[in-house]
């Protein structure tokens, strides 16, 4: 069997306003099966735009996006997305939100309730299965969103700063949970973040994106065994790598306004 990379992007460009503003320039990258990669970079580098293009929610000017060797045409259930903003449907409970996705992706009606229950359990929210989103904390909402995106078994999970709106403590717990799920369930994940420490904790490889125009500036492998220590207690080599990623981003913003 010929081994395709799970995701492959080649020669991709993207501009806004009829080509006046170039946001992504000549993007080429490959992601292997079961690999966890992060896209990091300063705001405005186009990392979220790139993710939206992979999701099929935005169109590129040219270039190719292949999933398992086949070009994508628009969004599809082979790619699940967890958005930064909360996208749980407010009139449905946590359980029903997962069921909604399963129903829309045409799962066997007899299995829907059971699959949803198992995924709510996966993100450790069984006690809150019947709670409405308005009754859940930000972290819980994102856990349901992860459960929902995983429930219909997409080939690739796309996450757009999913923990960006959470407080530091919750973010740490979410990262740990995501790692657990990733290790147990063999997922291919593309994770957008501006938090270097988060990228280092989670990723197999980090794509550092440059500014003006947005491009893949550098690919940095993170060859450290898991579980990795989060924040405190990281060994010097890991911290050195983290500093290197940060330097790489800073080089880009030098001379630009940094927010």
């Amino acid at each position: 069997m010929a081994q395709h990379p799970k995701l492959s992007i080649s020669g991709l460009n993207k501009s806004f306003r009829n080509g006046q503003v170039k946001v992504l320039s000549d993007i080429n990258l490959e992601v292997a099966d079961n690999e966890f990669v992060s896209l990091v970079g300063a705001s405005g580098c186009g990392k979220s735009t790139l993710l939206a293009i992979i999701a099929g929610l935005q169109e590129s000017d040219n270039g190719e996006v292949l999933v398992d060797g086949a070009p994508i045409s628009g969004p599809g259930i082979d790619r699940g997305v967890v958005f930064q903003s909360y996208t749980l449907l407010p009139w449905l409970t946590a359980q029903q939100n997962v069921e909604f996705a399963l129903r829309e992706t045409r799962h066997d009606p007899k299995e829907i309730a059971d699959i949803a229950r198992r995924h709510i359990e996966l993100v450790k929210l069984t006690r809150f299965a019947d709670a409405f989103p308005s009754q859940l904390s930000g972290g819980m909402k994102q856990r349901v969103a992860i459960a929902r995106a995983l429930s219909y078994r997409p080939k690739i999970l796309l996450m757009d700063e999913p923990f960006g709106a959470l407080d530091a403590l919750t973010r740490g717990q979410m990262q740990e949970l995501l790692m657990q799920i990733w290790q147990e369930h063999k997922l291919t994940v593309i994770f957008v973040t501006h938090d270097v420490s988060e990228a280092v904790y989670l990723s197999d490889r980090i794509f550092v994106m440059g500014l003006n125009p947005g491009r893949i500036k550098e690919t940095i492998p993170v060859p450290f065994a898991r579980p990795r220590a989060s924040e405190e207690g990281r060994d010097p080599e890991l911290l050195e790598l983290q500093a290197r990623v940060l330097r790489s981003i800073r080089e880009e913003t030098a001379g630009h306004d940094v927010h």
Binding site: A55, L57, P75, F83, S85
Partner: peptide
Amino acid sequence: PADFVGFGRTLGMSDLRVLMRIVVP
């Protein structure tokens, strides 16, 4: 929010379905 529409699209829902099942509710 636009992401609600985006969410519906990632499930492969048609525009009309996204409107009637997600946006209007």
